[in-house]
Nucleic acid binder design. Sequence first.
DNA 1: GGTAATTACCCACAACTACCCACAATCTTA
DNA 2: TAAGATTGTGGGTAGTTGTGGGTAATTACC
Lengths: 162, 162
Amino acid sequence: MGNYPFYDMTLTDNTFIGEYAYSLDSKGRVNIPAKFRQSLSADSQNTFVITRGLDPCIWVYPLEQWKEIENNLRNLSSVKNIHRTFVRDTARYASPSTYDKQGRITLTPSLTEYAVLEKDVLIIGMINKIEIWNPNTLKIVDQQNLEIEPDAYDDLADKIIL
Amino acid sequence: MGNYPFYDMTLTDNTFIGEYAYSLDSKGRVNIPAKFRQSLSADSQNTFVITRGLDPCIWVYPLEQWKEIENNLRNLSSVKNIHRTFVRDTARYASPSTYDKQGRITLTPSLTEYAVLEKDVLIIGMINKIEIWNPNTLKIVDQQNLEIEPDAYDDLADKIIL
DNA sequence: GGTAATTACCCACAACTACCCACAATCTTA
DNA sequence: TAAGATTGTGGGTAGTTGTGGGTAATTACC
């Protein structure tokens, strides 16, 4: 980040915000918003790593960000069962996907199935990663999240929103 | 900030005060008051980040200020549901907007809809950010705020007004 | 090793966005 | 007061973006 000339600070630091409605085509491709492509660092080489989200959606990491996760996994023990299990759970669903000339990545059938994606998808910038949702699923999850304790939520907001 | 000669101190530190009446054109553009543009820091690169306000209006942050919010969000956990939810709620409605040669930013349809903006809009300097209101909505909100406990309000005033 | 299925690459086009120019109204300055 | 500069508003145009589909290369399978 610090090394880039200041005029493209917003375009080169792997930070993603905003919400976009796109469509998944018959070949399993989705567009990556142009703004997201522009803010992908050169080190990521036009490549994202897609995997299961903790919510029923697909998580899309810039390659550079994913490499950090890989390094964290590399430091885990091969002997401790809990570590092995964690590595397996994290690694098995991930796969790299380079976007094509039109700016689309190809999703794997297993991830599309996991996120229950149909034609209409919602792409959300989550700062350090991207989420791909079925809009209907997100509506339900949003609804469920209304039950989060308002006090805890407000405390959080008070620390973060300026 | 500290490096600027004193005479344009007020013009270079991302501080906004005052109220302006402008109009939203058919392409979804609104002018940013010239004074606000002048007080935008160079680090913000002529760019604001627009997002949902906590009131039914649009919040407009100088890019530099928004970056701080982003950094706060970046420190939250991807694993805790309440954190994830908060990041999503905060990031999804935000989008950067650089003003054009005439000094206008383009609003997104979803934000215009959220703030129920029509042709006439009111732009208000809120010190560290800017608000864009439908004047009618603001009138209603002002009316509602008369019901705020006067004691608490006066206590606040006592601490702040010299 | 040959064939079928899958994947990656290419082209085409409609819709949209960002950029440019124009002009009237306002403010500044001589 | 007059001339010049700045500001706010409108609209045209070229370039970009999102979407669909075709073809060649690669992979998988028998």
